[in-house]
Design a protein around this nucleic acid. Structure first.
Lengths: 155, 155
DNA sequence: ACTAGATAGTTGCGAGCGCAACTGTCAACG
DNA sequence: CGTTGACAGTTGCGCTCGCAACTATCTAGT
């Protein structure tokens, strides 16, 4: 149970407050992970997310990236522009719907993808290994419950 | 276990990647919580954190806030300036050490603190209630393990 | 066909952030 | 004492972000 369990505000400690702890943890994990895609390839979080989202399908739209990553569409737009400029992805106008731009990885983009993904998975494994087996199970299950309750996966 | 468990990059799914999921979750939780301090008092996250950190002691320095919340000192500095301008905290130059500024809540600040903290705890309780009892226990324990492993509490 | 509203994506703008450099103060050491 | 380095806190600068507004395209209703 959380340690801020009483109502009396005089005992409130920010370091025991779960929303704060989640933010701080997510920040530290992101910072650690960013070493992989920033230091080696000069990519930032939005570009990394777009790259792997596009990479896990043959092609997709910016709209799909925004919806599945829950990033603001302008953030996606700028990441796509940056990746296009670096020739890691290609934008192809769609024939069926002239508003859409089909995104897909270039050869160089696929190469980066193939290098980054195993490294990222390795980092994730290292992170998860910091938890004891019993807690890890509860952690992943709880994560899923929270995501579902907050509507983060489907609407 | 995480669902991205194989090395083969072709099966990588961002939505199963724990660092991403943590970020997305922390973001959603923060957004939900910010309704309390933003919509009602026009405070942003940095101000909220400074307010409650100062409020949980009689007085403290900006340095202490930065260290205990792991916020950048400039972010703290600006939040302190903002709260001072709104007359929610006071800056008193320290006699023993002329570099420090002792921070403490004003009467108005204490009032805001007394209102906000119970509301925030209520939100936290609502959040935690979304997890089943068994998972909650593992979640909190795992959170602590991760924080310790990443050096987020003590150095 | 024409108009009205929805949708995909881009862009100008203001706000917030981190970095590096700065000011002012303290402590140590010759 | 005076100098040097550490430390508390602030500020200028450049960058990123989200919002709102925009363009271009599609869809539906008349």
């Amino acid at each position: 149970m959380a340690r801020n369990s009483t109502i009396t505000s005089s005992t409130f400690l920010l370091v025991n407050f779960v929303p704060f702890r989640l933010n701080r943890l997510a920040d530290a994990v992101s910072r650690d992970l960013s070493e992989i895609y920033r230091d080696r390839f000069g990519l930032e979080i939005p570009e990394w997310r777009v790259l792997v989202t596009v990479g896990q399908r043959r092609e997709c739209t910016a709209q799909h990236v925004a919806a599945s990553t829950r990033m603001h569409k302008t953030r996606v737009s700028r990441a796509v522009a940056s990746l296009t400029e670096r020739k890691l992805i290609e934008r192809v106008s769609c024939i069926e719907d002239g508003r859409e731009l089909r995104l897909c990885l270039t050869k160089a983009g696929k190469k980066v993808y193939e290098v980054l993904v195993p490294l990222a998975l390795e980092r994730e494994r290292t992170l998860l290994a910091k938890m004891s087996a019993g807690h890890l199970e509860g952690f992943i299950a709880a994560l899923l419950e929270l995501e579902d309750a907050l509507g983060l996966n489907g609407e």
